[in-house]
Design a protein around this nucleic acid. Structure first.
Lengths: 328, 328
DNA sequence: CCTGGTAATGTTCACGGTAACATTTGATGA
DNA sequence: TCATCAAATGTTACCGTGAACATTACCAGG
């Protein structure tokens, strides 16, 4: 910066003023400085800037390490919104072990982040962070609405309700659930909601199947499907795709013999065969909203209520009335 | 740090030595300092450290903004390998416009990154970077092997060859290609390789169809498929899935009437109906190798040859001999 | 012509670490 | 006992920027 100042014949502070768009710099001075900057290919040192100001103009994002479509879409939206607001995002992905979370958090705090977006699918991650983080605005994402303050979330219960209600409306009474890993908040919430609505309608309770979000695990789980079940509600689309494959492999037709519902509405869901009936979540909306909330918080504007996003049903060909109940 | 030093009754420099694991600190002094650190919840300021040392112990990663599975998998591998080597990764994703790329690069350089991993799917991005970046070790990823120096890549030509050869071996002679966006190096390379092998075998050249990597675009492209084509080679799995959907929708059976081959071998490819014959790429391997190369470069160890990864064919049910050529 | 005031610019210091060098401490052997 | 030397620790300067304050330039009005 001093080189630039020397070349432009001004002090380094004037250069700083030009860089930061301060008023009160004569146009021709400004131009001389700009020229010098370009001539020298000067680029300001952000570490020094951060050190001097105490702020880094960047928000930390603690993200899950497993790159699933949903979190990635939300993450991308967060990053875009951050950039549009003049912030850079410092993303660090971590597995949910407390030690790893603490380490990641240490790094982010050491980098003087101005705020934190916590994309935590597991309760343990939230706990690890809340026990550490201090004096920073935080917004929670993907927690399934468990922590109420400053949490942007999708109403999982509502999503499950419309999906299962759809099956019930079609006439299904033996519906089985393939859940995600139980340590995931979303998996737990979906499972609880499923149990609740099944009980509310007095349907038979079939054994719970558990997968790990992958299509492979959905395939494996569906092989163990109750032979009398006429419908499967899968906790995500990938498992649903795997389940359909398993059902077809074992000679059961979808949707004629077994209906399958997914959750997420991945871009590929509509091109699966049969096209997958599923619950649409606005991943990008969640990410975008999270940044809105965070910015409001940074500007000290109170943000009283954060309504959860309400997902909706996308009805496709993987669901149909059960044969057994409604013979043609 | 001075507070810590005061509490432990030593100088700040001794604290620094403890933090950096320097030899020559008496065990009990070290312990006192450690205690003081914990007592005060002290965390060192990385901006100051970076400013003082000139290095940030972090490598910048310029990644594409569209979160496709492949790049994401490679990215995750890069991050993991970086962390294992004691580096943090500073990921910034950008669209390919030169201005945006330059901006992203500016940010990374301003952050004093020690090296750069460039995940560039488009030539324009590579150009924008090479015209700017100076004095930094760079490794190129996903460029399809176009820039020869320090580029880690998958041999696209080999992948296309095995895929198309497979179709030819089955007896297909009218094979159409659904390519990705032509500004993507990978799309271009696959298309060129396809043209080459088709010409080499003297097969008929059918009109080129172009998609944008999405299943939707694959669906749209396949609707325009040549009626006489007996096989489609798609530049990625998502478009292949969309293509199968379109073919089935228009009453053509897969693989009985039309064979479909994809590229990438996404985790879901094997659960598509019919399971997708495709070319497997080792995305994680590429990411991992990129970091190996980068570390070797940082340590001034010459890294003479970087062999491209060779993809392989995964044969599944979406391909079969053509009916017309080999009537049963 | 001088005064007052504002716009433009310059000077100094601090941010929180690390590196280089300076100093103190403590053990060893003549 | 003291010289010697290495180990342990302390002191000082500096990294590149921005904030606060100091200064200079310039203009208008009495």
């Amino acid at each position: 910066m001093h080189d630039v100042a020397a070349l432009a014949g001004v002090s380094h502070q004037t250069v700083s003023r030009v860089l930061n768009d301060f008023a009160g710099v004569k146009p021709d001075t400004r131009e001389r400085v700009t020229e010098a900057i370009n001539a020298l290919g000067y680029r300001r040192n952000l570490a020094a800037r951060t050190l001097a100001t105490g702020r880094s103009q960047s928000i930390g994002v603690l993200a899950p390490e497993v790159p699933n479509f949903g979190p990635m879409a939300s993450l991308a939206a967060v990053e875009r919104a951050a950039r549009e607001a003049g912030f850079y995002s410092l993303v660090i992905s971590t597995t949910p072990e407390p030690a790893r979370v603490a380490e990641a958090l240490d790094y982010l705090l050491g980098k003087s982040i101005d705020a934190l977006v916590l994309m935590a699918q597991q309760r343990s991650v939230v706990d690890a962070v809340t026990s550490t983080a201090v004096g920073l605005p935080i917004v929670y994402l993907l927690t399934g609405g468990e922590s109420s303050d400053w949490a942007v979330s999708v109403d999982q219960g509502a999503g499950v309700d419309i999906a299962v209600q759809h099956l019930i409306d079609l006439g299904h009474r033996r519906i089985q659930h393939i859940a995600g890993p139980i340590d995931f908040s979303e998996a737990r919430l979906r499972r609880l909601a499923f149990d609740r609505i099944v009980a509310a309608h007095g349907l038979d309770s079939l054994p719970l199947l558990i997968g790990d979000w992958t299509a492979d695990s959905g395939y494996a789980a569906a092989l163990a499907l109750d032979p009398t079940a006429t419908a499967v509600f899968c906790a995500n689309d990938q498992m649903a795709v795997g389940a359909i494959h398993a059902l077809v492999d074992s000679g059961r037709r979808v949707p004629e013999e077994v209906s399958v519902v997914g959750f997420d509405d991945l871009p590929e869901a509509k091109h699966s065969l049969p096209p997958l009936t599923t619950v649409h979540q606005d991943f990008e909306g969640v990410g975008h909203r999270a940044m809105e909330v965070l910015l409001a918080r940074l500007n000290e504007q109170g943000c009283p209520t954060i309504d959860p996003f309400v997902p909706w049903l996308v009805e496709r060909a993987s669901t149909a009335p059960p044969r057994t109940n409604h013979p043609t």
